[in-house]
Design a protein around this nucleic acid. Structure first.
Length: 570
RNA sequence: UACCCGGUGGUGUAAUGGUAACACUAGUGGUUUUGGUCCACUCAUUCCAGGUUCGAGUCCUGGCCGGGUAACCA
């Protein structure tokens, strides 16, 4: 059990919240959710589920200049897709604006807040530094009466943007910058995506967040590490206000955990927005993006993402999780659920010279060896078949189980074939096709004499093959830690130029032609693929690779003298 | 030259004063009609130095290293 859950368990046991557990997931609607948010969602909703509590979805919409309805919608869709249901209606910090304003007036009356006329520049100058104290605002000692009047006029729109703020009166000498008379309200003559033009002053995060928690009766307010220094302020506000709702219970407690970092990508809204705006990717849902919408289009399953979040745990150590963990969670899920099919990405023709010229037969293939209930299907076989270009070599290296002159392999579910020779175009030297012979006694893929063959190849009969577009994705960044590799430079310098490879004429077995958009398949020996939700149509499929299968030959090959080629990644 | 928070195999997390565990990676071997899956085995003197204790990854002290913090962002 992680430290957050331990804390929740202890609080529940002690009865401070009357046995209640209420958490919240509080995104700002200024961007799309990514895998890092999934960690927070799984934590907050997971804890609520495990402890018989509730989790609220609350938009932290206190900055109208950055927030949009588009994001409000995508966020809800992503949370639902992940498999979670929030308690009650969707909530918004903005629905508490009136209440917050009343509390602000209360603080003014108690002389705990004041209207400050300093400019942003002046405030910055007088805030002091990390090592030295700040100095009080000259407006700090205004009377409650004046402050109340000014605050009301701020709200009425009498003053231009930036002219005044409402500040908490705490301690300009505090070693914690957040306690140096932080701003509670600023004037922003901007329309808000929910409250429209009814407000021209907006609460800051610190002022709005803890109070929203208190109003909703949140017991545990779980957030990321960078808010650790804000906790004293969070507690100060809650303590300063009289007559908060739910006063029979303990106030909400803020608990901080380390945000997720993942190798070969970036996970900050700002940077992801930049990638979208500068068109390094096709959009928020580009299958290479770590956004939930990107992962969804890529073919990740909600179960795999939830499993991943379980596996990485929750702690306060700043860490970077290896992307293979995410991929493995997915392989695990898809291995059990994805039906198998055969597809050849880079086709090389094989002519079986002793196979009857116009014969076509139908062979039985299992749909999923991991799941007998998935049944079987018929696949056509003929004299000419496509095999993978990479499955043939003129000279077989050590431990090569695939095709080479004189080598016998099995065509999966079909026959043993032996490679006789490669035929080349005399002009270019390119291999045009392979000539093989087959053993009719091995129909289905077993030899009656018990002779073993180590290699099994996937294949597609030429006569009935379906040609299709397939997209292969690789890491968005070529560097495992693009941000630290960039240092002060541009992380975008490490974008992987080969993160998308388009294959225009892959050859698929006929059953794949009618694949439903969004359906996931394992192409045998290659990886998991999804019929693209946007571009694929039954009869004219377009597939994207979700993730490769593990490839122990690629590993072996790298250790061979000569090193081998750079294998395709995920 | 301030305050807050951290430091356990390659990676990420456990161990709540009592045999350093689990997952992934890597390596080795086995099974296999996917070089997939599956199975077995191997891989750490817990940042350093003192101290407390019968006993310290855990408690104390001092270092070292890393992260966060000076928006009218969240």
């Amino acid at each position: 059990m992680d430290f957050v859950r331990e804390r929740v368990a202890a609080d529940r046991a002690s009865g401070v919240d009357g046995g209640r557990v209420i958490t919240r997931f509080p995104p700002e609607p200024n961007g799309y959710l990514h895998i890092g948010h999934a960690k927070s969602i799984c934590l907050n909703f997971g804890i609520a589920q495990e402890f018989g509590g509730q989790c609220h979805l609350r938009f932290d919409d206190t900055n109208p200049t950055k927030e949009e309805t588009e994001y409000v919608e995508s966020i809800q869709e992503d949370v639902r897709w992940l498999g979670f249901a929030w308690s009650g209606e969707v909530r918004y910090a903005s629905q508490y604006f009136e209440q917050l304003f009343e509390y602000a007036k209360q603080l003014v009356r108690k002389n705990l807040a004041f209207v400050c006329d300093q400019t942003g520049e002046e405030m910055r100058r007088t805030r002091g530094s990390l090592t030295g104290p700040g100095s009080p605002s000259p407006f700090r000692e205004r009377s409650a009466k004046v402050n109340l009047d000014l605050l009301e006029r701020m709200r009425q729109g009498e003053f231009p943007e930036g002219a005044r703020t409402l500040r908490a009166k705490i301690d300009m000498g505090s070693p914690n910058m957040n306690m140096r008379d932080p701003v509670m309200y600023r004037i922003l003559h901007s329309a808000h995506h929910r409250t429209g033009a009814s407000w021209c002053i907006y609460p800051t995060y610190d002022w709005a967040h803890g109070l929203s928690d208190a109003i909703e009766g949140i017991t545990h307010s779980i957030c990321t590490l960078e808010f650790e220094n804000h906790r004293p302020l969070y507690e100060w506000f809650l303590k300063a206000i009289d007559r908060l709702p739910h006063q029979d219970r303990a106030p909400p407690r803020q608990i901080e955990f380390a945000r997720l970092n993942l190798t070969y990508t970036v996970l900050s809204k700002r940077k992801l927005l930049e990638l979208v705006q500068e068109k390094h990717v096709a959009g928020w849902d580009d299958p290479r993006m770590p956004t939930l919408s990107g992962l969804r289009r890529r073919g990740f399953t909600p179960a795999a993402i939830r499993r991943f979040c379980e596996q990485i745990g929750v702690a306060k150590f700043n860490s970077t999780v290896d992307r293979v963990l995410l991929e493995n969670a997915l392989r695990d899920d898809l291995n059990r659920s994805a039906p198998r099919a055969m597809a050849v990405l880079r086709p090389l023709k094989v002519v079986i010279e002793n196979y009857p010229q116009d014969q076509v037969e139908s062979l039985v293939a299992q749909n999923n060896p991991e799941d007998p209930a998935a049944g079987s299907r018929q696949i056509p076989f003929g004299r000419e078949v496509w095999v993978e270009r990479d499955d043939y070599k003129d000279e077989a290296p050590k431990d090569w189980f695939r095709l080479a002159p004189g080598k016998e392999v099995r065509l999966r579910y079909a026959y043993y074939v032996t490679c006789q020779r490669a035929v080349r175009d005399p002009a270019t030297g390119e291999i045009t096709h392979l000539v093989c012979t087959y053993d009719p006694a091995t129909r289905g893929g077993d030899s009656p004499d018990g002779r073993k063959v180590k290699g099994t190849l996937h294949w597609v009969a030429c006569a009935s093959a379906v040609s299709a577009h397939v997209r292969l994705y690789d890491h968005l960044f070529g560097e495992s830690h693009p941000e630290s590799a960039a240092g002060d430079g541009d992380y975008k310098a490490f974008l992987n130029p080969n993160s998308l490879e388009s294959i225009t004429a892959a050859q698929l077995e006929p059953s794949l032609a009618e694949a439903q958009p969004g359906s996931r398949w394992q192409f045998e020996r290659l990886g998991y693929f999804i019929a693209d939700v946007v571009d694929s149509r039954p009869g004219r499929p377009v597939f994207g690779r979700i993730v490769t299968l593990k490839d122990s030959w690629a590993k072996l090959e790298k250790k061979l003298p000569g090193g081998g080629r750079q294998p395709a990644k995920t």
